[in-house]
Simulated assay, not measured.
Amino acid sequence: MRPEDLRWLREVLPAPLVEGITGVHLRRSGFLCLSCRGRGFCGKPKCPVLLRAEALARTGKRLSSRIWGSSPPSVFVGRLGYPRVYVGPMLPPYLGDTSLLDTPENWTDKSVEEIVAFRSSLVRGKKRERVEAAKGGSRLVEVLQEMAMGEQPVEAEILLSKRPSSFLTVGEEIPPMGPSAPLRELKISYVKTNRVMERIFYDGDLRAQEAVIELYRSGIPVSKIQRAFSMGIFGLKERRRLVPTRWSITAVDSILSEELVEELKDFD
Rank of each mutant, 00 (worst) to 15 (best):
V18C: 02
E19D: 09
I21M: 15
T22P: 06
G23P: 04
V24C: 06
V24H: 11
H25P: 03
H25S: 02
L26D: 09
R27T: 10
R28T: 03
S29Q: 09
L32D: 14
C33H: 15
L34S: 06
S35H: 13
S35Q: 15
C36M: 10
G38Q: 14
G38E: 13
R39P: 10
C42R: 15
G43P: 14
G43S: 15
P48H: 12
V49C: 06
L51Q: 04
A53H: 01
L56T: 00
L56K: 02
T59P: 03
T59Y: 08
T59R: 10
G60V: 03
G60F: 09
K61W: 08
S64C: 10
R66H: 03
R66M: 05
I67M: 11
W68I: 11
W68V: 11
G69Q: 11
S70H: 12
S71Q: 06
P72D: 09
P73Q: 13
V75Q: 07
F76Q: 07
F76D: 10
F76W: 06
F76S: 10
G78R: 07
G78I: 00
L80G: 00
Y82C: 11
Y82E: 13
P83H: 10
P83S: 10
R84L: 11
V85T: 01
V87F: 06
G88H: 04
G88D: 03
M90R: 13
P93W: 13
P93E: 09
L95W: 09
G96L: 09
T98P: 00
L100N: 04
L100H: 05
T103D: 05
N106V: 03
N106G: 08
W107P: 14
D109S: 14
K110Q: 15
K110C: 11
K110H: 12
K110R: 15
V112A: 13
V112M: 15
V116Y: 13
V116T: 14
F118K: 13
F118G: 09
R119L: 13
R119H: 04
S120R: 08
L122P: 08
L122K: 04
R124E: 00
K126M: 03
K126L: 05
E129C: 11
A133K: 15
A133D: 03
A134T: 05
A134D: 03
K135F: 04
K135H: 01
G137Q: 08
S138H: 00
R139P: 01
R139I: 08
L140K: 00
E142A: 11
V143Y: 00
V143G: 06
V143C: 02
L144A: 04
Q145F: 00
Q145W: 10
M147Q: 06
A148F: 00
A148M: 05
M149K: 07
M149F: 01
E151G: 00
E151K: 03
E151N: 03
P153R: 02
E155P: 01
E157N: 02
